[in-house]
Design a protein around this nucleic acid. Structure first.
Lengths: 137, 137
DNA sequence: CTAGATGCAAAATTTTTGCATGGCA
DNA sequence: TGCCATGCAAAAATTTTGCATCTAG
């Protein structure tokens, strides 16, 4: 089953209808991976700002996408299982973001959630530092 | 050495002068722990909005404070070593945030940074889920 | 004294809202 | 068809900027 179908099923599961704005936002994020709200709005040319905001909010609620914060702004990306990228390490100087491997990290996170008696819905892990290139300058 | 002195030293170390807005922002955050930008601005009654924004930006740059994101908005809090609170687990339903213990988590984070060849400056870890109270409803 | 920081006022950007209309189930 | 979702337009909220003034060092 492809991602799009999976997405539509998720919408239905949450009793949300399959609409043009929702499909568009999903498609754009699927293509681009990590976007600012502004870029997303621009990329969704024929969709109204307000609808993009509303779509992002719904899709976040049903855990299809999430916000990733670094510095002042946030970016948007698809959540697992629609995308495998959950964690980043961002260079303070050149602003590049690279993914970090999840396995050990998520083990720890789930242990922590259990200890605190939480049912885990989502998690954001952002590390900031100097990448090796920038350190040499 | 108390926190305030340590803060002033940090400012000097980064060649920033010790000013009223900076002291005020620090003091408020020290008292309140985790605030929205708006609350901070309100609490800094006699300081101009713009100065609060500028102060937050400088203090973030020198790692005295950082932003913590949950949902759409962010909150501000002092960074280590000015405050021991770095990680939270936030309930989706009641919005309460509680601190989570750092030890194991930070071990993992520093290993990950090393693997990626980064010098670590900061990290944000936010878990979201349902707390035990809310689960029962 | 003087570079850097502030306050003020205004602009720019980002987010939210109300309401009439349109389209999915 | 009925209800949810959208577009539009406007308001509200948040953040940034330019510039004259002030102040910490």
């Amino acid at each position: 089953m492809n991602l799009l179908t999976q997405f539509e099923n998720t919408l239905k599961l949450h009793q949300l209808s399959v609409t043009k704005p929702r499909l568009k936002v999903f498609e754009i994020l699927e293509q681009h991976g990590l976007l600012t709200m502004n870029d997303l709005i621009k990329a969704c040319a024929d969709i109204d700002r307000a609808s993009v905001y509303r779509t992002v909010e719904s899709l976040e609620t049903i855990h299809v996408l999430h916000k990733v914060y670094s510095g002042f702004k946030y970016k948007l990306e698809l959540s697992d299982p629609f995308s495998p990228h959950h964690h980043h390490i961002v260079c303070t100087r050149c602003k590049k973001a690279q993914d970090i491997s999840k396995d050990r990290l998520e083990t720890i996170l789930s242990i922590i959630a259990k200890e605190n008696n939480y049912v885990l819905y989502g998690h954001v892990v952002e590390l900031t530092g100097l990448c090796s290139d920038c350190r040499e300058i």
